[in-house]
Design a protein around this nucleic acid. Structure first.
Lengths: 153, 153
DNA sequence: TTATACGTGACTTATAAAGTCACAAGAATC
DNA sequence: GATTCTTGTGACTTTATAAGTCACGTATAA
């Protein structure tokens, strides 16, 4: 199966929607993302249901933000996509009779759970707005320098 | 694609190989795991190359351990399988021109990296031998009690 | 010599996301 | 009201990859 790219893609979309204040059509988003406009609509449907974006039909219609990006965490976006399966790996069969098989499954499941927890805590503590800090690294650096002179990090 | 079950499966195999001291044929393992003997051989090939097990042909042949299970970490097994892809999720396109897309990718990649690190540290610190502690929970509990009375956890 | 048993190339199958197409329905503009 | 734009969605096809299957060569033990 092709790797699930929806999370980075919709994040990308949100960042663009924040820059372009007018509604953006699925067609334009499709060109930005290199994907079919129909697929854009389908992928964005979850974000609309989650109240992050809104779509309007007809002339001058398209997608626009209905929330500030600093009020949306990456975890919110992940959840809006339906919390897609995170791992390509998994236990074999559910609740097998063999105790050894169960032990093997549980060990793997345990490690995966720990990884999932780490992933979720990471994305829960980053807002989409903060992603701008990548492109604006220099600004952030200077900001951090100023911060350090006034209070500890 | 069906989920990658190789890690729990080969762990299961190793636990059985430790119980049954005689060589076990791929056919028998296939029945235990509910999979084709040919697939068993293919899946076990990595463990053989890693020196964890050995296979012998002909009458009375089959698979047997060449290492103690307490010398094999889950991470060793994972590596022996070729470090299969851990995530069903991933960044879209590599090094895109759009800065916003790159920021989105990096954010996702960062969270995934953190999750992978957590996963790897988990499996690095568990030996296959320790998986027996699941089925032998009661024993482990008493052991832990004794441990606590002598030194801090 | 024969019955096992592994090793492996060359397939087919299964699964889920990606991608495509068509068209109904709503909204703005003339 | 007719036209044009745009979303929403059903019904597909395509793609990627692990799982699974089959066949057969090779090696080993009895």
């Amino acid at each position: 199966m092709p790797t699930d790219n929806r999370l980075p893609r919709v994040l990308h979309v949100l960042l663009h929607l924040d820059e372009i204040k007018d509604p953006v059509t699925s067609d334009m988003l499709g060109q930005m993302l290199g994907m079919n406009p129909s697929l854009v609509r389908r992928t964005m449907a979850g974000l609309r249901e989650a109240g992050m974006v809104s779509s309007t039909k007809g002339h001058g219609g398209g997608w626009h933000l209905t929330k500030s990006l600093d009020e949306i965490s990456l975890a919110d976006v992940y959840a809006a996509l339906g919390t897609p399966n995170l791992f390509a790996l998994g236990p074999a069969g559910d609740t097998p009779d063999c105790l050894l098989e169960r032990a093997a499954n549980e060990a793997v499941a345990g490690a995966l759970d720990a990884a999932r927890t780490e992933f979720e805590s990471r994305i829960a503590n980053v807002t989409v707005a903060q992603l701008f800090q990548g492109p604006r690294k220099e600004v952030a650096k200077h900001q951090a320098k100023r911060d350090r002179s006034s209070h500890a990090v």
